[in-house]
């Protein structure tokens, strides 16, 4: 492993760590439900830009960590993020050519898939069905995409994996 690859790994891990931190950071009670799916967004970015390094298994691992720190059923996020990772790998060539704001629409679909699968798992494990606000974070995530893309892209050009 060369020095630049190692730095790349560090950047990937750091960005996932930041995503986790933003997921856990306490928000006022009314805002907690609208928190964007940070880890999913970070995952989509890395799968789109370096699919060789971050793929389905990395998504699975990230999901497992998310399950442990947020106290959901073990495997819930592992499953949803694996599916999102897979879809991102498969759709990569059809998402990447477009400008950021058009990518945002595809990203929205991926975020919706993640939410939908979570909903099924909530239902299957006997949790109550959440209100319609449940879908708001996907829209917020979509609006955040161009900014996230620009900032992570610039970080990647400076330190990151090729």
């Amino acid at each position: 492993m060369t020095a630049s690859e190692r730095r790349g790994t560090a950047l990937i891990l750091a960005s996932f760590g930041l995503g986790l931190l933003l997921t856990l950071l306490p928000l006022p009670h009314w805002a907690a439900e609208y928190r964007p799916q940070w880890v999913t967004l970070v995952l989509i970015f890395w799968v789109l830009s370096v699919p060789r390094r971050v793929g389905v298994f990395a998504a699975f691992a990230a999901g497992l960590v998310l399950d442990v720190v947020t106290g959901t059923v073990l495997g819930q996020h592992a499953l949803t993020l694996s599916v999102v990772g897979f879809l991102a790998v498969e759709l990569r060539q059809r998402i990447l050519p477009f400008p950021a704001w058009q990518q945002a629409l595809s990203v929205w679909v991926l975020l919706l898939v993640e939410r939908l699968l979570s909903l099924w798992i909530l239902g299957a494990t006997g949790q109550p069905t959440p209100s319609l606000d449940y879908w708001v974070p996907t829209v917020i995530g979509m609006l955040l995409w161009p900014w996230l893309l620009a900032s992570l892209e610039s970080l990647r050009e400076r330190f990151g994996p090729a």
Partner: peptide, 17 residues
């Protein structure tokens, strides 16, 4: 890989719940 990940996580969900 997806198949493997899905099988693993479904098992986890089942066992953990």
């Amino acid at each position: 890989r997806l198949t493997v990940a899905l099988l693993l996580s479904l098992t986890l969900i089942f066992v953990d719940s």
